Simulated assay, not measured.
Amino acid sequence: MNATVPGTVTVPFLDLAADNAVLRDDLDLAWKSVTGHGRFVGGPEVAAFETAFAGFCGTRHALGVGNGTDALEIILRSLGIGRGDEVIVPANSFVATVEAVCTAGARPRFVDVLPDTLLLDPDQVAAAVGPRTAAVIAVHLFGQMADMPALEAITRAHGLALVEDAAQAHGAEFAGRRAGSVGVAAAFSFYPGKNLGALGDGGAVVTDDTGLAARMRCLADHGRSDTDRHRHPLRGVNSRLDTLQAAILLAKLPALDAATAHRRAAMTLYRDLLPACCTPVVQRPEAASVHHLAVVQVDDRAAVTARLDAHGVGWGVHYPVPCHRQPAFAEFADGPLPVTEAAAGRILSLPMYATIAAETVGIVCAVLAGGGAVLSGARP
């Protein structure tokens, strides 16, 4: 949400206008190029972005698709995962992770997360593997990768597919490996609020597996043959990254590492200035987070958010209702998941975006500390 109180500073939770203004000339040029040549679907910018994004992730292949949810479903279906299979997923995730599993025809198997990072707990994953388990989806939540070496060891031991949900982790690393380059395939979202955001919906899948890449490309294009566009060997879907969005993303990609560095500096400042009542989510020493979100845990979220509202500071909660407690997926809940359930009532996302100023971080922390009376004035 974004609260505004007359006479106080307004601090947005997310400022996409400011982030995009930095690249205004490049974005305008992308728009003019695509509207000029008129190839709005399958234009040259799509292939150019796919090549650039694969290079960014350190993978051989990338395929632009309609959105991040489609990306996950296309991966699962291309791996042959469906009815009768189980897919292990963390309950602490956006519902899209679970939606994709269900749409592919498989059953989600919810497991708990680690209390410090709120990411997938490898011990819980190992305990949840059963005879029907076909895959594990590692969700890189808030911008930090899950413990991929531990998850790799589990999936290799049991012959399971390890899939990365990297929707919030563009450019994140764990033990020197980038998000998207570890599992058999990875799904990315380019929803406008993501670190690499389009001006509308968009997504991508990346992989090193050439055969899998071909199946995913076929499936995403109505199951169409790559040699005869009138033949459809698969029952596919229509999930394409529009040329305009690809052009926008291609313009933004070269600036992403610098934007990530700014987010990291902002999060470091948050950690230095946050009062004792706010406990930031831990970053593992092996991890290089891209800080898609600045998440803390607080004991009395209602009181803290009321204070933020009173001083015009935006905030969010990601996510207040865990997936296994959502009505749509309650049938798959095998029992309580205490870490996820406890965190759902305590997590709070603070303002974070690529152009956030140090002054703004200071204002947020001052308000959280109980100050804010002298914070009236112009918007930072």
Rank of each mutant, 00 (worst) to 15 (best):
Y319R: 12
A328W: 01
V317L: 00
E341A: 06
A330E: 08
F332Y: 10
P336G: 13
W315V: 13
P322E: 04
V313S: 12
G335H: 09
W315K: 09
D334V: 10
V339M: 03
Y319G: 02
G335P: 05
V313N: 12
C323Q: 09
D334H: 10
A333H: 06
A328Y: 00
A333G: 08
P322G: 05
P338Y: 07
G316W: 13
V339Y: 02
P320A: 09
V321S: 08
G314N: 08
F329W: 09
A330C: 08
P327Q: 06
E341H: 01
V339E: 04
P336K: 11
V317E: 09
T340Y: 01
V313Q: 12
V321D: 10
H324M: 09
D334C: 14
P336T: 15
A342V: 04
E341K: 04
A328H: 04
E341F: 03
C323T: 12
G314Y: 07
H318R: 13
G335C: 09
V339Q: 01
P327Y: 06
P338G: 07
H324A: 12
Q326K: 08
F332K: 00
V321M: 11
C323Y: 00
P327V: 08
G316K: 06
E341D: 14
P322M: 04
P322A: 02
P322L: 05
Y319P: 05
E331R: 11
H318S: 10
P327K: 10
V321H: 09
V321N: 09
H324L: 08
G316R: 10
P338D: 11
H324D: 03
A342K: 07
V313D: 10
L337K: 04
H318I: 15
V313R: 10
A328C: 01
V313Y: 12
W315R: 05
V313P: 06
W315E: 14
Q326Y: 00
A330D: 07
F332G: 01
H324P: 06
P320C: 11
F329V: 01
G314I: 08
V313T: 13
F332E: 00
T340W: 02
G335R: 10
P322C: 04
P327R: 11
A328Q: 14
A328L: 08
A342T: 12
F329R: 00
P336Q: 12
E341V: 01
G316C: 00
E331V: 09
G314D: 12
H318D: 13
Y319Q: 11
Y319C: 08
L337D: 01
